[in-house]
Design a protein around this nucleic acid. Structure first.
Length: 569
RNA sequence: GGCGUUAUAGCUCAGUUGGUUAGAGCGAACGACUCAUAAUCGUUAGGUCCCAGGUUCAAGUCCCGGUAACGCCA
């Protein structure tokens, strides 16, 4: 039995996330966590909300609420939606937790002690009306190049020219619209990542089994141009982790907070601490290699936009601390899911959002489609036509109908109990050999975190059951040899339990219904399929379950396609 | 402007270190079956592997140059 630490990139707090966010990190992480638990491994599956930074402050302001209150509410909303999708976190934490404050400050202190923090003075635009410094992109004005009147301080979206905020004609705050701006000097802390470049580079080079997407992004940042740059880790904001050097004040840094990208990944550790405080568990045996974590295998899941922070910045924090923290062993990254020819977008309200998805269909439909089309090698495209066709075919016709035809046949020809009699022949031996091969392949793909391939193999396992029934035709056999038909259908009913166990990581709710219908709590993995197909003995009662997956009709599809064609607020 | 990823059947995608007639699912056509959610199973058709060069006994796979889509950075 292994010990597996799994983290999913932590979703930002400023609103409800769309399906692209789900398939890019949380869902595949959950698939892996559920699978590893099913195989008997000890799993710690951690996620959280990422709550600091300017966008959170602005979203709170828009909602007319204090930012702490807003974050607390949105955290609950996201937790509820996550539960709705069956995300089986051991803990869903908050980056604003006291545990994360303490840990973030401790890391900063350690890095300073190691000589990896530099204080840098810089000039930034301050808005008197807003009472705050403004990040470049929150300053608007007229572009000196093309005259576009909504150019941002970092770039003009109209002519794409790169700008400095001071280039803008009539600059104003994008938050309040105020033109009462001035340039002020302010001091910030920089993490000297450049000093760790060689160490990070050697570490990345040693990860030959990582997805190309992960290592190519990391190498690009390491070697492009002047190489890995030092990074500012503080901001002039109110909402965040106050800058401290461990438990001590940090002279000159009063009133500043750590940059959200510094404290967010540390929340993986802090969230485990939160879990420990809640449950009485031991978090350090997951994170400190001097306190029991040396045999932990740590796997991270994330979208490609998060890769630089997880391959470089966070490891720089860990390595730079010179303390025995657990480093990630494998980073599984994903491309984007597109919607209707363009990107899903939280800020533009484009696409299907997680709450809406759960409103129209049970989680398993989404889990299955999104996972079986996970954007592993390139961006993937969501279309309603594909979603309808694939979900109906795989879930309703192949799996759902298998359960239905087997249970109903047994009920009508025998009873709602596994019938006795008969013995395996060649067909059964062949089926068991075939399924065993497929199950071993499925296990290998799941262990490799090859999401699409796993889904494809699982589908093949479902199909094999239908092939067997079609070839052996128990409904015909029954007329001349009821005992043989009894054997066939007893095997098929046992197959439903096996399917439930194998499918649970993808479609946990349907799997639970299948087990409930089979009237069993036996979720043991079919290491030995021959034995597993005898788990439910002759005479064991079952009930015909309700339709597992109702079909998505053309009317539904057209209605939804229209409903989600525009944008939402 | 720099860099990265991608480009394979109508659609969505597989194709390990270069090695026989390039694969799967969906969709299509035809057939079988009638237990089942008009479900299932089988057969067949469909590809100048983006274009142009090169290396090699052998290239979808490696190299060079283009083109296109998407993304990242400045």
């Amino acid at each position: 039995m292994a010990r597996i630490l799994i983290t999913s990139a932590i979703p930002y707090i400023n609103g409800i996330k769309h399906l692209g966010n789900l398939v890019g990190s949380q869902l595949p992480a959950d698939l892996y966590a559920r699978y590893m638990r099913a195989r008997g491994h000890e799993v710690m599956f951690i996620c959280a909300t990422d709550e600091h930074g300017t966008p959170a402050e602005l979203a709170a302001k828009k909602a007319g609420k204090p930012v702490a209150e807003f974050c607390a509410e949105m955290h609950e909303v996201q937790a509820k939606i996550g539960a709705g999708f069956g995300l089986s976190f051991d803990h869903f934490g908050r980056s604003s937790s006291p545990q994360n404050h303490a840990l973030t400050q401790a890391f900063a202190g350690r890095l300073a002690d190691e000589g990896l923090i530099e204080e840098v003075s810089e000039s930034q635009v301050y808005s008197n009306a807003d009472g705050r410094f403004l990040p470049d992109r929150y300053i608007e004005g007229t572009c000196p190049n093309c005259g576009y009147d909504k150019a941002r301080g970092d770039q003009c979206e109209n002519c794409t020219k790169q700008l400095d905020p001071t280039d803008l004609i009539e600059p104003r705050s994008a938050i309040s619209g105020s033109t009462d701006l001035e340039v002020r000097d302010t001091k910030h802390l920089y993490l000297k990542q450049s000093q760790l470049k060689d160490k990070l580079s050697a570490w990345i080079d040693s990860k030959t089994d990582w997805p190309v997407l992960t290592t190519s992004i990391a190498k690009k940042w390491l070697h492009d141009g002047d190489g890995l740059q030092d990074r500012g880790i503080t901001r002039d904001l109110d909402w965040g982790v106050p800058v401290k050097r461990g438990a001590q004040e940090w002279p000159g840094m009063e009133g500043k907070v750590f940059y959200v990208w510094f404290d967010a990944p540390i929340e993986y550790i802090a969230a485990t601490h939160e879990w420990a405080d809640k449950t009485g568990g031991d978090w350090q045996r997951w994170w400190r290699t001097d306190k029991g974590a040396e045999d932990v295998k740590y796997v991270q899941f994330m979208g490609k936009d998060n890769v630089p922070f997880h391959t470089l910045s966070f490891p720089a924090t860990i390595m730079g601390s010179n303390e025995p923290w657990k480093l990630v062993d494998y980073i599984k990254s994903f491309n984007y899911l597109n919607y209707d020819g363009g990107q899903f977008s939280t800020s533009q309200g484009r696409g299907i959002f997680q709450d809406q998805a759960l409103d129209i269909l049970p989680a398993d439909y989404w889990r299955w489609w999104l996972l079986s089309h996970a954007p592993e090698n390139s961006d993937a495209e969501f279309t309603w036509e594909a979603f309808q066709t694939d979900a109906n075919k795989d879930l309703a016709d192949v799996l759902g109908n298998f359960v239905s035809r087997v249970t109903k046949f047994c009920r009508s020809k025998f009873s709602e109990a596994l019938p006795a009699g008969g013995a395996y022949g060649d067909a059964e031996t062949r089926l068991i050999a075939d399924l065993t091969t497929k199950i071993r392949a499925y296990e290998a793909h799941m262990a490799d975190k090859e999401v699409r391939k796993s889904a494809n193999e699982l589908r093949g396992i479902w199909v094999a059951g239908n092939e067997y029934l079609q070839a052996e035709a128990p409904w015909t056999v029954f007329k001349t040899d009821p005992e043989k038909a009894a054997m066939q259908i007893r095997l098929a009913l046992n197959l439903i339990r096996v399917y439930a166990v194998l499918s649970a990581p993808f479609i946990p709710d349907a799997a639970a219904k299948m087990l409930s219908g089979m009237n069993t709590l036996d979720t043991s993995w079919p290491d030995d399929l021959d034995a597993a197909l005898a788990a439910l003995p002759a005479g064991h009662d079952f009930t015909v379950p309700e339709v597992l997956f109702a079909k998505i009709t053309d009317e539904h599809r057209e209605d939804w396609a229209e409903r989600f064609a525009g944008t939402r607020d």
